[in-house]
């Protein structure tokens, strides 16, 4: 995982509620076997609407997106996170996120920052003309004005992001614990293991 600490720059004031992952990246883009190049399809249906915020020149290459409640609901497709990264987005601010999306965002080093609706509303206003800064270390979102909005973050995720840790690498270090669990499980619930054998060699 790439290291993340502070993200600063323009923020696209989308504001919409319930932005689902089909909207972030429609299914016809999912035929790829790569993580790259999905930015072209990101927010396709919104970008086809005249006057959408993605078209505003000032927001080209903006690292932050501001959205409404329940961002990233629906499909588990991690392509949504890859598409956002590919278009240059490395953080989303919203009042709430779907559970699966916030996990996918974290695994790709995208900050999913939850703030109350009033603070999101304020940031939507500021973002029209000014940059925003997200400081992960101090867990605070700031603007060029007096705004200082503190946010919560899972301590383990914060630790991984600040240090650029590889989660799979960390878990593989727990191999002995996993093996021990498997041993106990094989003793108490042996029928859970190797179900295929029963398929191939019916009793």
């Amino acid at each position: 995982m790439k290291q993340v600490s502070t993200i600063s720059g323009r923020a696209i004031p989308l504001g919409l509620k319930n932005v689902d992952t089909d909207v972030i990246i429609p299914a016809h883009w999912l035929k790829t076997v790569s993580r790259e190049g999905l930015g072209k399809g990101a927010f396709e249906s919104i970008r086809q609407t005249p006057g959408n915020p993605f078209d505003v020149e000032d927001f080209a290459g903006a690292p932050i997106l501001i959205a409404g409640d329940n961002f990233g609901c629906g499909s588990s497709r991690e392509h949504a996170a890859w598409a956002m990264l590919d278009m240059g987005l490395t953080a989303v601010i919203a009042p709430s996120f779907s559970d699966i999306f916030s996990g996918n965002a974290f695994k790709n080093g995208i900050l999913a920052v939850e703030l109350p609706q009033e603070q999101v509303d304020r940031l939507l206003e500021v973002a029209k003309d000014h940059p925003i800064t997200i400081d992960l270390e101090n867990q605070v979102v700031t603007t060029p004005f007096q705004d200082r909005f503190a946010f919560e973050v899972d301590p383990f995720r914060k630790h991984c992001l600040l240090n650029g840790l590889d989660e799979i690498g960390l878990t593989l270090e727990r191999d002995a614990s996993i093996a021990k669990y498997e041993e106990t499980r094989a003793a108490s619930l042996p029928w859970l293991d190797a179900p295929h054998k029963k398929r191939r060699e019916p009793a």
Binding site: S76, R77, E78, A81, I100, G103, N104, K107, N108, F156, E167, I168, T171, L172, R174, I178, E182
Partner: peptide, 16 residues
């Protein structure tokens, strides 16, 4: 789960 978690489960048979 997302694809990173698919990879995590394939490699470790666990999730965090």
């Amino acid at each position: 789960i997302g694809t990173s978690e698919v990879e995590h489960v394939l490699a470790t048979q666990t999730l965090l």
